[in-house]
Amino acid sequence: MKKHAPATLRNREVIAQALAEELPQDGLVLEVASGSGEHAVFFADRFPMMTWQPSDPNGEAVASIRAYRTEFSGTNLRSPVVLDASMPDHWNAEAVDAIVCINMTHISPWAASVGLFKGAAQILSGKSLPLILYGPYFEHGVEPAPSNIAFDEGLRARNSEWGIRRLADMDALAHANGLTRTARREMPANNVFLVYRPG
């Protein structure tokens, strides 16, 4: 039932350190595309003042999150919900204090990224609250790592709608939805940590 994403163990600590600088002191975090659920459990434990709401559109992923949640001793990790990033009008999400999305944009159709920003704008509108993304991106003026080029080619071979996104395109999506990038941090393994906020 439980799934395991090897990258989670490698990146969770450095992501948590970056989250600590961007998350509010307390409140509700919506994690979009939680995958196996390993990040959700780790972050809920790391940030006990935050309530963590995991989600995923995939039934097997939701089952995995539930399985990990049964082993979590805290009270701030909610049961996962089914949520498709590409359909923000059907999120039925309550007011949240942050949205976190890790390693989704390159392993999903472009419509998922479009929906993510639209949904974030609807939920975070009028507040200086963060939409936080983590993953690989191609950036203007930055020589892409050979490993990212190979990764992108492999993704597109698996699904023509997948692929590493251009940071400029993400910024354009943000702008179209009233969001502005307020932070960018380089992360291990040629990933970046991005923060967008309304305004």
Score class of each variant (00 low, 15 high):
P6Q: 07
A7W: 12
T8M: 00
T8Q: 00
L9G: 15
L9C: 01
N11P: 06
Q17E: 09
Q17S: 10
Q17N: 02
A18N: 06
L19G: 00
A20E: 11
E22C: 06
G27V: 08
L30Y: 02
L30G: 00
E31D: 05
V32R: 04
A33S: 03
G35A: 02
S36V: 07
G37I: 00
A40S: 06
A44R: 01
A44S: 09
D45N: 09
R46A: 04
R46D: 00
F47Q: 02
W52S: 02
D56Y: 08
F72R: 06
S73W: 07
G74M: 07
T75M: 11
L77K: 01
L77C: 11
D89H: 08
W91F: 12
W91Y: 03
N92K: 11
D97G: 02
V100D: 01
C101R: 08
I102N: 04
T105C: 15
A112P: 01
A112G: 07
A112W: 09
V114S: 07
L116C: 11
G119M: 13
G119V: 05
A121L: 07
Q122W: 02
S125D: 10
K127Y: 00
S128R: 14
L129T: 05
L133Y: 13
G135H: 05
P136T: 11
P136M: 11
H140C: 06
P144H: 01
N148G: 05
F151A: 10
D152A: 07
L155E: 11
R166L: 14
A168Y: 07
D169C: 10
M170N: 10
D171A: 13
A172E: 14
L173A: 01
L173E: 15
A174R: 01
H175D: 12
L179E: 01
T180K: 15
T182Y: 06
E186L: 13
N191V: 10
V192K: 13
R197E: 10
R197K: 15
